[in-house]
Design a protein around this nucleic acid. Sequence first.
DNA 1: ACCTGAACACCGTTCAAGT
DNA 2: ACCTGAACACCGTTCAAGT
Lengths: 232, 232
Amino acid sequence: MARPRKPLLSRDRIVEAASALVDAEGLEGVSTRRLAAELGVSGPSLYNHFRTKDEILEAVADAVSAKVDLSMFDADDGREWRQALHDWALSYRAALTEHPHIVPVLARGPGRRPAGLRVADAVFGAMVRAGWPPAQATYIGALMRYFVTGSALGSFARGFVDDATAYDPADYPHLGQAHLLADHQERVDEGAFETGLRALLDGLGVQYEAVRRRPRGPAEARTTVRPAPKPG
Amino acid sequence: MARPRKPLLSRDRIVEAASALVDAEGLEGVSTRRLAAELGVSGPSLYNHFRTKDEILEAVADAVSAKVDLSMFDADDGREWRQALHDWALSYRAALTEHPHIVPVLARGPGRRPAGLRVADAVFGAMVRAGWPPAQATYIGALMRYFVTGSALGSFARGFVDDATAYDPADYPHLGQAHLLADHQERVDEGAFETGLRALLDGLGVQYEAVRRRPRGPAEARTTVRPAPKPG
DNA sequence: ACCTGAACACCGTTCAAGT
DNA sequence: ACCTGAACACCGTTCAAGT
């Protein structure tokens, strides 16, 4: 069989199989030959649909971004911007922790991925509507992204070993109980995420009040970052 | 030449060469053969000093962690915890942006890397000394890490293309100026980082006041996360 | 103990050949 | 247009052989 009358492959089928493989085996488990085998074709066939393996992984990452709920940013649902950011962050993090192995790819940046851009667009638009200056709205999209991807990528607790002898008090005077962290991994990561998210939103609240109070004095315009590259 | 009287290699030499290679070519530029060639030996020689290539990369990441300034956490330098966290975050970020290609490895978590653990230890110790409950001190170390590594990993602006036609208003109604971001990349990332850091510290300040006010009521103990796995 | 070359079991990608 | 097998230039790692 050289060419079937009905194509055996499609971008969607490839992305679906690649996602399953990434979830099951991690990024290292994905080779073009392995993926092709999973799809019942030979390795080079994939190159009729994607230019590189990396493009396939980008598509997998984008499929995860597409699962992030953005409905809280809808114009007139009566939600406050802080509440919307909060809910979005939870949905964002949930999407990532459901597919942890692809996070390194996704964390590289929103890039050209359509779903990633849709996220950036929604956040930026909602913040501007809420009264944030465009420059700040851009920053908020970026910094929230930093925090959420950072938390999904580097489970803090996962790094600690479940071995009391691993942390010599002479080297790490305050890590006496560190070996216990291995057990409490998830709880610590979630606590840190919640604490950080609350801090972020409270802190943005402070800045929001300041911005609202002096909405755009010319003196400020001179000392501030500059007109404001949009967005997002 | 089979075995020289003086070893040709050492862990330090290997890490040094690997760091240079990572900086110059990125992670993909590092192969064991390439690295060995740079050191004037054959590929398998490396395995006398490291068990795997990944162990070499971990060591490179740890060398970067070792450059993070921790002196602001020294017991009696009169600094306030917020100021210390702020200065540390800047130093942390600076270390990472100087070696951007290794960040994905470093962001995986502090793991067993000695310098990474030293960082965790210093932050945890300083926060506890400042009056934070151990559980919260643990969270602070983790959430600061999320934010800093996330910002170093995923340059938000870098993701946007310098092409006005790339962002169809029908798809992304608020991304009209997105193509300008490519130009302002660094400024946006720095603005987002500063804005986020300030928000984080302000927000933690709010939580600090709350914790200080009610230092450990039994009612709180029941509703709060739980005793507190240390640290760090 | 520490280096070597040869070898194993893989890679991503290109390309001419098939229909 | 879409798949194939063969091939190219790589990989990380193991291992027996050398000193």
